[in-house]
């Protein structure tokens, strides 16, 4: 087992400890991993260092307060943190509201099923490995679409690639990701 294979399940356990025991040591470990990545994510989206620092702290504070809403059957901790950071970015940088879909009627308060949790976390680890294994140009386009706050047409303008090429490359990359995960 490599490091990746164990880490996603580990993050789930740490969030569980924050949720049930307000465990500061568990939170510190999550903070050490995710806060610097969230800060980098916000800076790539156009925030200056001090705004990115401030927002990354707020994102991590939200992780603490909303730990009870994390559902390990639906998402990895990285995905959950990503959605919190993304929403903070929309609010702080784009100054917009973020309409969210209605929650599923059964809501997040049911007890997570252990085997479904492990299956989801394994899938997410596979996704991470598949992403890392993509050819550089495809991986970079995906990263820019998520990170750089660039639309496809803005990526096209910056890379000089026609819009159709960008779209088909992103689609190709995502198809490869899905294939790898099967």
């Amino acid at each position: 087992m490599n490091e990746r294979q164990t880490s996603d399940v580990r993050w789930v356990q740490l969030v569980e400890r924050v949720r049930s025991g307000r465990d500061q040591r568990a939170f510190a470990e999550l903070f050490g991993h995710f806060a610097p990545r969230v800060k980098a994510f916000l800076m790539k989206s156009g925030a200056d260092a001090s705004l990115a620092e401030e927002c990354a702290q707020e994102v991590m504070a939200t992780v603490w307060h909303k730990a009870h809403l994390f559902d390990p059957e639906r998402a990895s901790v990285a995905t959950w943190v990503f959605t919190i950071a993304r929403n903070r970015r929309i609010d702080a940088l784009r100054k917009q509201r973020r309409p969210e879909p209605e929650d599923l009627p059964w809501g997040p308060e049911h007890e997570p099923d252990q085997s479904e949790t492990i299956a989801l976390q394994q899938e997410s680890e596979q996704l991470g490995r598949a992403l890392a294994a993509l050819p550089d140009n495809q991986r970079m386009l995906i990263e820019r679409a998520y990170f750089g706050e660039l639309s496809h047409s803005e990526i096209a303008a910056e890379t000089g690639l026609p819009l159709g090429t960008i779209k088909s490359r992103i689609r190709l990359a995502l198809e490869r990701l899905r294939h790898e995960m099967k």
Binding site: K39, A52, A61, A78, T79, V81, R86, L127, Y146
Partner: peptide, 25 residues
């Protein structure tokens, strides 16, 4: 969204300020 999570997890890090953890607490 899972792709976004994988991208974040793979991201380069940007060092947090010295007293960042305490400030967050």
């Amino acid at each position: 969204e899972a792709v976004g999570g994988a991208v974040l997890d793979d991201a380069p890090e940007c060092a947090m300020a010295e007293d960042s953890f305490a400030a967050t607490m």
